[in-house]
Amino acid sequence: MAFNILVKDDRITLKLSGNVDLSETNDIKLAIAEEPKAGFKHLVINGEALEYIDSSGVALMLFTKKLAADQNLIFEVEALSENAQKVINLAGLAGILKIKNVPKIDAETSPKSEKVEDLSLDFALDDLFNEPAEGDKNKDPIKINPGSF
């Protein structure tokens, strides 16, 4: 089972784990929709144990957010796995879901990006039509002269 519903104090927590995809989301929606909400203040999603989530899992999160709003509950996503966070970011929903504990990448351990050369078409065409600098004359043996084609 890819989910558990935990009830404690004034919080209902939907704990997602493993794979949450189309085969699971309908059952999860039904379970969270049928959970009594009287007397609660928070509806929370915890996805720190998610291994995989597809678009139906993202839709489940949005469904849960709407359900919380309809019931006048405070909605939050308290944690997501790195894989789930990537999917949410790609969907452009990180700001809407307001995830509390986002996995952080340590700046010192992340690979340093090397200087990337601008390979846009305008830059490449400018290089073809402009005279090379004195030291670069032998680096590019192919030259296109305006009007040569």
Rank of each mutant, 00 (worst) to 15 (best):
T13H: 01
T13N: 01
T13W: 00
L16R: 03
L16K: 02
G18V: 08
G18A: 07
G18R: 06
N19T: 15
N19F: 12
N19E: 14
V20H: 00
V20M: 00
D21F: 11
D21S: 07
S23L: 06
S23V: 02
S23Q: 10
S23M: 05
E24D: 05
E24F: 03
T25G: 01
T25M: 00
N26A: 10
N26D: 15
N26H: 09
D27L: 13
D27W: 04
I28Y: 01
I28S: 00
K29S: 05
A31F: 01
A33K: 11
E34Q: 15
E35V: 15
P36R: 04
P36F: 03
P36G: 07
P36S: 08
G39P: 10
G39S: 08
F40I: 03
F40N: 03
F40S: 03
K41M: 09
K41H: 10
H42Y: 14
H42S: 01
H42W: 11
H42V: 03
L43Y: 01
V44W: 00
N46W: 06
N46Y: 08
N46S: 09
N46M: 10
G47D: 10
G47K: 08
G47A: 12
A49Y: 10
L50I: 15
Y52D: 04
Y52E: 02
I53F: 04
D54E: 07
S55T: 11
S56Y: 06
A59P: 03
A59C: 03
A59Q: 12
A59H: 09
L60D: 08
L62M: 13
L62F: 06
L62C: 06
F63W: 03
F63T: 07
F63A: 02
T64P: 04
K65Q: 13
K66M: 10
K66H: 11
K66F: 04
L67Q: 01
L67P: 02
L67W: 02
A68H: 05
A69N: 09
D70F: 05
D70Y: 07
D70K: 14
D70V: 09
Q71W: 11
L73Y: 05
L73P: 03
I74M: 08
I74F: 06
I74R: 12
F75L: 05
E76I: 01
E76G: 08
E76A: 06
V77K: 05
E78K: 14
L80M: 15
E82K: 15
E82L: 04
N83L: 12
A84H: 07
A84Q: 12
K86Q: 12
K86P: 00
I88N: 02
N89M: 14
L90C: 06
A91H: 03
A91M: 10
L93G: 00
I96H: 01
L97F: 06
L97E: 09
K98L: 10
I99N: 04
K100C: 07
K100S: 14
K100N: 14
N101K: 15
V102Q: 14
P103K: 14
P103N: 13
K104Y: 11
I105P: 00
I105A: 15
D106C: 14
D106I: 15
A107N: 13
E108M: 07
E108V: 13
E108C: 00
E108N: 12
E108T: 14
S110F: 06
K112H: 04
K112I: 13
K112S: 11
S113F: 01
S113A: 11
K115S: 05
K115R: 11
K115A: 10
